[in-house]
């Protein structure tokens, strides 16, 4: 009789299934399709742009590649779908794309009412000012009394009004309906400063300024524009993969792992590195991807610092300073929870 009891106990243990293998719907669809479909901004220099040969590059693009590297072990298995601002969320909701890396700001309304989840902030942006160097303004606090080229009725305008009122500074507005007109007016010297998101200003300076070095982007941001990856509500597993792919890139930078030394790092006897790079298994299984996921990301895409420098930082035409996007250990905001 006692043997029966034991047998029953073991039997009960045996019928408990291992259902982690069963993946979420999005991941299944992605795997079946053989590539990740990634919505990006149509042209945002440094973040997502396509060259003559149809090759995409940019920070957002690299994040999509990281996701593909985590899922397939191959960063090239991504299809990029250029989307303009109005189409991006419907495209995500309808399932046309799996993930958005389209410079979308993480806000309350989008997080709740749109049925999407923000899976990690890859770029801390904010509204700033572009001025001519010869004007001698070096910080936003120096802007008292300037004339500003603006599109009326936008949040950009509201932010400017807020900021100048709060700091008791005077300013004058030159309203424009079209971005091109406004840009032209600024470079023609019709107003002292142009305001937009910092990343945008850097791109504008490179692309449109007669001589980029004559113009200066003031470092301080007067608003918060955290640009985040976006996935659909409801499929937590896929969201986790997207989120932790970004975190793995940040974590890799923190531990000094780059695409060049990742092989040496994997051979080191360091518990954290071993766990992250899949030498000690467990993390990949928890995410539902290959144990080498982080290794593949770093090997094929690089760490966050590499991606930043290559696309928007010192090694790119934009030359955006890291600023808020420095690692938390260096005074920035980029922080990844521990991979364990």
């Amino acid at each position: 009789m006692r043997n029966t009891v034991l047998a029953a106990a073991i039997g009960l243990a045996a019928i408990l299934p291992t259902h982690r293998a069963e993946a979420g719907p999005t991941l299944d669809a992605v795997k079946a399709r053989g590539q990740l479909v990634c919505g990006v901004a149509a042209t945002a220099q440094g973040f997502s742009s396509v060259d003559d040969k149809g090759k995409w590059s940019g920070l957002g693009v690299d994040l999509c590649r990281a996701g593909a590297a985590a899922i397939f072990g191959d960063a090239q298995k991504v299809e990029f779908v250029p989307l303009d601002a109005a189409k991006r969320f419907p495209a995500l909701q309808s399932g046309e794309v799996d993930v958005l890396a389209s410079n979308s700001t993480f806000t309350l309304t989008r997080d709740t009412a749109l049925g999407v989840d923000f899976a990690g902030i890859y770029y801390y942006d904010g509204q700033g000012f572009l001025v001519a160097r010869k004007l001698g303004k070096r910080t936003t606090k120096d802007l008292n009394g300037v004339s500003i080229c603006l599109q009326p009725g936008t949040t950009t305008e509201a932010n400017v009004v807020d900021y100048f009122q709060k700091n008791k500074m005077a300013f004058k507005v030159l309203p424009f309906d079209k971005v091109e007109d406004m840009r032209k007016a600024f470079f023609d010297g019709k107003c002292d400063t142009l305001t937009a998101d910092l990343s945008n200003l850097y791109a504008t300076r490179v692309a449109y300024a007669p001589n980029p070095n004559d113009f200066l982007v003031l470092a301080q941001a007067i608003s918060k524009e955290p640009l985040a990856l976006v996935v659909r509500h409801g499929d937590n597993q896929f969201a986790d993969i997207v989120r932790w792919s970004l975190f793995a890139m940040i974590e890799a930078e923190e531990y000094g792992i780059t695409s060049k030394n990742v092989d040496q790092a994997a051979a080191m006897d360091h518990p954290l590195l071993k766990r992250m790079l899949g030498v000690t298994p467990g993390m990949g299984k928890a995410l539902g991807v290959d144990e080498k996921w982080a290794y593949n990301i770093i090997k094929q895409v690089g760490n966050y610092g590499e991606a930043f420098d290559r696309n928007v930082g010192p090694n790119s035409p934009l030359k955006i300073p890291r600023g808020l996007n420095m690692l938390w250990t260096q005074g920035g905001l980029q922080y990844a929870p521990p991979i364990r």
């Binding site: 009789m1 006692r2 029966t4 009891v5 029953a8 106990a9």
Partner: peptide, 13 residues
């Protein structure tokens, strides 16, 4: 009888 024996021995073990 089997059910009861099984239960009793399981709990007492």
């Amino acid at each position: 009888k089997g059910l009861c024996v099984g239960f009793i021995e399981l709990i007492r073990g």
